[in-house]
Design a protein around this nucleic acid. Structure first.
Length: 586
RNA sequence: GCGCCCGUAGCUCAGCUGGAUAGAGCGUUGGCCUCCGGAGCCAAAGGUCGUGAGUUCGAAUCUCGCCGGGCGCGCCA
């Protein structure tokens, strides 16, 4: 409808250009929007206001001229010029009715489209270091990334969901060392645990596996481990330098093969845990992309060579620098350290180069807001490589703060006592977690009220929407209990009986759904869908309390049931796009 | 100091590429169950859109300054 009206106005403008009322130069695009106020009709167009100066005429005058040139459309009952020069379209009373049949025919496909025309989009999200379980911060990235991916898929993009596994860095070595030290403790050694090592319970679990399955095969007397190391932080030393020394010593004492085994055990155990966690959260990936594989394939070196060929590298202080300031970054960045090792940034350049080489039309990165300083340098690298940085869209997700009993829930990663995503799911359930995480726009800080998420009342937006869905199912059960039958064809034929204001509101809501999905997908803003679902649920609950559906009059009854089923379909389709279940009963 | 995000009702937040009288939920106050699930609904009160300028027919929305809050500024990942 929207596009039809747009075309009608465009045609009118073209006619006005031909007869000289409007200048022949290119005109601004015609926007037709849903009117917010019912008195302004169903759709409104403000193009005349924008054309006023261009044409040297008063807006209302132009609007009148446009209206005079509009072709007829049986769905439009009235067009009027109002206010400063708005063109308001009033739809014929039954113009909306066909949407009910369309929804019921399309079912789960209602709201989907081929807008994306199969263009390939990659969404990379979560990508947390596999050094421990996911926490509630990662949960928001997971829920957001999954919803964005599902939305894009719904409007016809070929979506590739990817998790970038940082399996090569120093953090992984710290994990390996942590596991090994805990293992030594299980072997009966007294270990002073490094300040900078991972001390969560899961480290004990992995060490336990190692000890249970391999006995003392990895046992080394603890005196050998710590002999001659620099002081740790509590002893007045540097914790970073200390942990690096512990790692080096572990490598030396275990040898390559055994060290590698401990390393892999830690990595794989945690990765498996993350994978399960996300799967249970309804988040699945097409690919888990290994950082290590980049350097093994020579991609990192190749990226560096390409930057060198482009003349964007230079040496200073023994390190190799990328001139990112030439592309808007605030300072240049090291890609190869003085000790010859490539930096994480070098891997990331290679990774993003690789993403674009894989042929994605568009690449979306979902990052925690604390990484925002990283955006300019990655874009700078793409630009230096001759790629279009516009193809990369980095979405920053702000942190979530948990509240319980009105109090902020304290989290401390240092002590290992953080709230994990798994704990959150267990406490509030998957549906509430998925819904709450995407309720706010991503760049907005999120206050996550645990008590509200758990409550079973209309205060809780998840239950509110789900309840509307379940209520429809309940009505159908009631229909059967009363020994009545639904006649779908009779319902569709009698849709003209739906004249109550609540019915009109619901018809509009149902018709708007595809527009909302499209808008939420293109803007990468699932919260738009959340707000829409709340509105429709509200309209439904109002309808429910003011009117009986199961009335004596069979035509009216079937018409109302058809409408209500269409509403249920929309709510269900929307909830599923957000990863939330749409229950038949609660 | 520099950079990014945020500042809208008592609280938590919407407000789509600038558009007609700024919206919702919670909370407050007052109402609604012989009837499909009250896990619901209705009504009222409540706002100088942080602030000062600018752009224009029109600014919560765009630009700049200032104030306030969050985050980030490593040869860590």
């Amino acid at each position: 409808m929207k596009h039809d009206l747009q075309r009608m106005v465009e045609a009118a403008l073209a006619a006005l250009q031909r007869d000289g009322t409007l200048p022949a130069e290119p005109l601004p695009p015609v926007q037709v929007e849903r009117a917010r106020d019912p008195r302004h009709g169903d759709w409104a167009c403000s193009v005349a206001l924008g054309l006023a100066r261009l044409a040297g005429r008063r807006p209302r005058e132009i609007a009148e001229a446009i209206v005079g040139r509009l072709g007829p459309d049986p769905r439009v009952s009235r067009v009027e010029v109002a206010g400063a020069g708005f063109i308001n379209f009033f739809l014929a009373p039954d113009a909306l009715l066909h949407v009910v049949g369309a929804v019921l025919a399309a079912g789960p496909a209602y709201g989907r489209s081929d807008l994306g025309r199969g263009r390939r989009v990659q969404v990379e999200f979560v990508s947390a270091n596999p050094t421990g379980p996911l926490h509630v911060g990662h949960g928001r990235g997971a829920a957001y990334g999954a919803a964005v991916a599902d939305l894009l898929e719904a409007v016809g993009f070929a979506v590739h969901r990817e998790y970038y596994v940082n399996d090569a860095g120093r953090q992984m070595d710290i994990l390996a060392a942590s596991v090994w030290l805990r293992y030594l403790e299980l072997c009966g050694e007294a270990v002073v645990f490094p300040a900078n090592a991972y001390r969560g319970d899961y480290v004990w679990d992995i060490a336990g596996t190692l000890h249970r399955e391999h006995g003392d095969a990895y046992h080394v007397p603890v005196a050998h481990v710590f002999d001659g190391l620099p002081p740790d932080e509590p002893a007045g030393g540097d914790k970073e330098r200390y942990i690096d020394a512990v790692i080096a010593r572990a490598r030396e004492l275990l040898g390559d093969n055994r060290y590698r085994f401990v390393f892999e055990l830690g990595l794989n155990t945690i990765l498996e845990d993350i994978r399960d966690d996300l799967r249970e959260f309804g988040v699945v990936y097409d690919e888990w992309y290994s950082e290590r594989s980049l350097s093994e394939r020579g991609a990192v070196q190749r990226a560096i060579e390409r930057l060198r060929d482009a003349g964007q590298l230079y040496e200073r202080d023994g390190a190799l620098w990328f001139r990112s300031t030439a592309f808007g970054d605030e300072k240049d960045r090291v890609v190869v350290r003085e000790n010859g090792q490539t930096t994480y940034f070098a891997s990331d350049i290679a990774y993003h180069m690789d993403k674009l080489e894989r042929g994605f039309d568009r690449v979306i990165d979902v990052w925690g807001a604390d990484h925002h300083g990283y955006v300019p340098r990655v874009k700078a690298a793409l630009q230096a490589l001759g790629d279009d940085p516009e193809r990369l869209d980095v979405r920053l997700v702000q942190f979530a703060t948990l509240y319980r009993g009105g109090e902020k829930v304290q989290m401390s990663t240092r002590s290992g006592e953080f709230v994990t995503l798994r704990q959150l799911r267990k406490e509030v359930g998957r549906d509430a977690a998925r819904f709450f995480y995407v309720m706010r726009k991503s760049e907005q800080h999120l206050d996550f009220d645990l008590d509200l998420a758990k409550s079973r009342s209309s205060d809780n937006p998840v239950y509110y929407v789900q309840y509307a869905h379940a209520r429809v199912a309940s009505v159908l059960r009631q229909l059967a209990e009363r020994g009545l039958e639904r006649h779908p064809e009779r319902g569709l034929a009698a849709l003209g009986r739906l004249t109550e204001s609540q019915e009109q509101a619901l018809l509009t809501g149902v018709a708007r759904y595809p527009e909302v999905v499209e808008s939420a997908a293109l803007a990468h803003e699932p919260h738009q869908l959340v707000h829409f679902l709340r509105e429709v649920a509200n309209d439904f609950h109002v309808y429910y309390t003011t009117h009986q559906f199961l009335v004596e009059d069979g035509d009216l009854r079937d018409a109302r049931l058809a409408l209500v089923l269409a509403v249920q379909q929309v709510l269900g389709n929307g909830l599923r796009l957000l990863g939330v279940s749409a229950p038949e009963a609660m």
